[in-house]
Amino acid sequence: MTGFASAKGALGAYGWAWDLRSVNGKGLDLRLRVPDWLDGLEGALRTELSKSVTRGNITLSLRIGRDETAGTLTLNTATMGVVLDALHELETEALARGMTLAPTTAGELLALRGMLEPGTGAEDTAPLVARLIAEFPALVADFVAMRREEGAALSNILTEQLAQVETLTARAAELAEARKAASAEALKTNLARVLDSAGGADPDRVAQELALLAVKADVTEEIDRLGAHVRAARGLLRDGGAVGRKLDFLMQEFNREANTLCSKSQSSELTAVGLELKAIIDQMREQVQNVE
């Protein structure tokens, strides 16, 4: 099932952007692209995400940037030494020439390029990881909400398609009932023809074979099973939850019964109904691939 959610956040010198999306998939495939320098983050996000989704190819991306100007600054002692030595030499030379220089303030010295630089010490990333983990459930909630909206639309589509299957199944039952008299008459005619042309044939044996053919042509069980599958599919849609795999299996059963109905139809009208059933069932199978 497709879905999408995004969010942004910030903490201190760090800013980040989330991107969570999914496409259809038979199983659950989680692909997380998060910074590997944040210890424990990927495992926590994977666990949280697995609680809310059970199907689909899901990709999570987290991009983090750092504002270097917002971090701590340290004094570059090497640069400071060079500047102070130069300042001392300048003042000494000025005095030798009878000149007096204005006092230099610490602020003026610190403003010189290279005197201050971003801190290079190891930084504790635990607060950042904790903040990211804390805000992740809200992103997942938005993601799941979008998938639920799509799921509601899919439920309406499948419900309508099930109604079409039910209507066609009822039509198949009517046609099957209407052909019984014709089938019985055809069997009697065939039995008489066989007995006339096969002088030594055992009438009971021939009758058994014809009866077997009649049983093989009966589509009552297929029609009954189609009705049962419609009821089962409606029950799954009504109950909700992660029913995609169950519906996928039901679609296979629907297709099997429709194929058998066509092969046993012995009637152009019944065959036409069977083909319509197969077309609707194929459409349902495509939609079910989108269901979690």
Rank of each mutant, 00 (worst) to 15 (best):
M1P: 09
M1F: 02
G3P: 05
S6A: 14
L11H: 08
A17M: 12
A17C: 11
L28W: 06
R31N: 14
D36P: 01
D39A: 12
E42P: 11
A44G: 01
L45G: 09
T47M: 10
E48W: 00
S50D: 05
V53C: 07
R66L: 07
L75C: 10
L75Q: 09
G81I: 00
L84R: 12
E89D: 14
E89W: 00
E91P: 08
L95C: 07
M99K: 13
T100H: 12
L109F: 03
A111C: 06
L112P: 05
G121P: 06
L128Y: 03
A130Q: 10
A138L: 07
A141N: 07
D142V: 05
M146F: 09
G151S: 07
A152D: 14
N156M: 09
I157Q: 05
E160Q: 13
Q161P: 04
E166A: 12
E166T: 09
A173P: 12
E174N: 10
A176T: 03
R179A: 13
A181N: 10
E185P: 11
A198K: 04
P203C: 08
Q208Y: 04
L212D: 13
A217E: 12
D224L: 09
L226N: 01
G227A: 04
G227C: 02
R231M: 04
R231Y: 00
A232E: 11
A233L: 02
G235K: 04
L236N: 07
L237G: 11
R238C: 10
G240A: 10
V243P: 03
G244E: 03
L250R: 02
L250A: 04
F254P: 08
E257P: 07
N259T: 13
S268P: 10
E269L: 08
G274Q: 11
L275K: 15
A279M: 12
I280M: 09
Q283G: 15
Q283E: 13
Q283F: 07
